[in-house]
Design a protein around this nucleic acid. Sequence first.
DNA 1: ATGAAAGCGCTAACAC
DNA 2: GTGTTAGCGCTTTCAT
Lengths: 340, 340
Amino acid sequence: MNPDADARRLQMADIARLAGVSVSTVSRALNGSSLVNEATRQRITELARSLNYSINLSAQNLRLKKNQTIAVVVPFDAQSRQHISDPFFLSIVGSIADALTDRGYDMLLSRVDAERLDSASSLYDSGKAIGIVVIGQWRHHDQLNDMAARKVPLVVWGGQLPQQLYCSVGGDNLAGGLVATQHLIAGGRRHIAFVGDAALPEVMLRQQGHHQALAAAGIAREPRLDLPVPFEIGAARTALDGLFASGLPVDGIVACSDLLALQAVQAAQAAGRSVPEDVAVVGYDDMPVATYSSPPLTTVHQPVDLAGAEIVDALLCLLAGERALPRTLPVHLVVRGSAP
Amino acid sequence: MNPDADARRLQMADIARLAGVSVSTVSRALNGSSLVNEATRQRITELARSLNYSINLSAQNLRLKKNQTIAVVVPFDAQSRQHISDPFFLSIVGSIADALTDRGYDMLLSRVDAERLDSASSLYDSGKAIGIVVIGQWRHHDQLNDMAARKVPLVVWGGQLPQQLYCSVGGDNLAGGLVATQHLIAGGRRHIAFVGDAALPEVMLRQQGHHQALAAAGIAREPRLDLPVPFEIGAARTALDGLFASGLPVDGIVACSDLLALQAVQAAQAAGRSVPEDVAVVGYDDMPVATYSSPPLTTVHQPVDLAGAEIVDALLCLLAGERALPRTLPVHLVVRGSAP
DNA sequence: ATGAAAGCGCTAACAC
DNA sequence: GTGTTAGCGCTTTCAT
C-alpha cells in the first residue's frame, strides 16, 4: 500500500478515477451543472460525500478569481498591547460574524495597531480578503480616507464625519449624547460630567450632543467636568476618583461605555456618594452587564444586532460597485436604576 | 489606454515586464532568495512596493500547498439562534486572535450550530483552514471525538474528559468548583447552591469539585440546590427566583459564570436577602465586569491571556505531526465583596 | 452527455 | 544570476 496514500488529500482526479469518469464530469456534477446525466451526477455526489471529499478552495478561487472572505479588523492599543476588552467591540464582531455567515461569506478576524489602521489594507492587497471592515476610527480618520481613496472596499464602524471618503456605519452618537444628558437634566441634575476621550470621533459626537443638551438647558459648560479617559480598562478610575476628590459639584455622569459607567458608580460610592440619589449615572451601549449590575444602568442602547447586518450590506454594495452611503443607526435611552 | 487596465489586479508578470526581468526573478526577489543580485532585488522590491503590488495568495497557496489559516469556531444555540453573549467566550476568541497574529497565522472566525459541532470539519476538508479550534464541548464530546478520529487537526477549549481522542485546553474546572465551594464553607456557609448546566463537560467538572468540597466538609448534598441553567442570558433568573421562593435554606451560591453570579445577586436582593450577609455569591471567569459590579464579585479567575497561547501552541504541535496532550490551566479564587 | 486541453498566478527544478 | 518550463487542483471552452 502506498505509505502516504491516506495522508494525501483527496482530489477531483481521485473521485474521477473511482467513478470511472473524467475530472470535468466530476467538476460539473459537483457544481450541479445540468449538462451531466442525472444518474452519474447522483453517483458522483454520493461517492464524493462518502469519501468526505471537498473542493480545494485555493484552486477554485484561483481559477474563478473568486474569494468570499471579508476581513474584520479590530484595532489594539500598541502602547499597552492591550486586548480587546470592551464587551461592545466583541459584540459587534459577533454580530458581523452572524451577518457574514448568513450571506455565505467567510470572516477573517485580525488585529492591527490602532496607530496604523491603514496597514489593514494589506489584507485586501494580498487577496486574503475582498473587503475590509474596521471597528472604530480611533485617531486615524485620515488613514481610513487614504484607504478609501485607494479604492479598498472598506466599511468602518464609527461616527459619520465631514469630508469622509469611506463608508461608515454607526450608532447615532450625537443623539445618544443628547438624550443621555437631557434625561439627567430632566431629573434635575445640573453638574454633569462627561467621561470619554473626545479624540475619538464617536466620543466627540456624543460630547457634542452632551454640550447641545447643556446649552439648551442654559447650563454653562464646565471644562473640568469633561474627563478624556480612554476605553481601556482601569485608566478611568483614577480620573473619576480625582473628580470626586476635586470638590467640584457633580450630580450626574454621562459615560461612553457601560464599563466606564460601572467604574463611575464605584468611584462615586467609594467617595461616599450614593447612586442615583447623589449622583445619577448614564452608561452607553446597553450591554448585558448593564442589566445585571446594582443598580442596573440607565444606558444608551446601541443596535448591535442590526449593526452587523448594516455593515455587511454596506460592504456588499461597495463590492457590487455601487456607492455606499454612510449609515447612522437609531439609538435610544433605556432607563434603569442608576438614573431613574 | 486599455479601459480595464487599472481595474485588473497587478500580478507578477506586470512587475516582471516593468522591471525588465522574468517572473521567476521577481518571485525570487520578493521571497528574499539569495540567488538574485542584490541590486536587482532592491529594484524589484522597490517597484513592487511603489505599485502596491502583493502576491496573490490563492495562487501561492495552491502552488506551495500551503495555508496559514486557522478556523476558530464559536458554536451557537440553534433553538434560540442566540448570539455569543457571554463575555468569556468572546475574550477567549480575542486571546486566540492575539496568539495567532503573533505567530503569523490568520484566523477564520465561524459559527456553527452547537448541535452539529462536527460540521466544523468542512472548514478543514475544504482547505479553508489547516486546523480548527472549537470553543466549548457543549453536549457533543462524541462528535469531537469523531473529528479527531478522522485526523482533523483539532483543539477544543473545554474540560478534559476520559476517553478523549481530541486535544483539549481548559481551566482546571474541578479545582475551580472545589475552591469556590471551600471558600464559602470556610466562611461558614452550609446551604450552597450550584448554578450551571452539568450537561456541559466543563460545568460537570466544576460540579464534581463542588460536591467534593461538600463531602469533605461533611455536608449532605441537596439535589434541589443544583440549578441546571444554561449560559444563555435570561434563562437563569426564573430558576433563581424559584430557588429563593422555595423556602429552601440558601446561604451561598456558586455560579458558573460572572453573568450568572450577577443574576444570582440580583435575584437574592429582589428576594430581600442581602449579599454577602445573607447569601454569599461566587462567580466564575473573572471578567472585567466582576470588578465593577456592586458588590464586586468573588470569582474563580480563568487565565484567558494564557489560554489563547496554549490553544494555539497545542494546535501547532498537532500540525507539526506531534501528539498534543490535553492541557489544564491553573485557576485561582479572587476574593472580593460578594463572598469575603 | 462526456472528455481533452488550456489556463488561473505562482514557485522551483533545471538549464544556461 | 537569470530565464525557461512544468505543474499546484480546479473550471471551462471546444470537440466529439
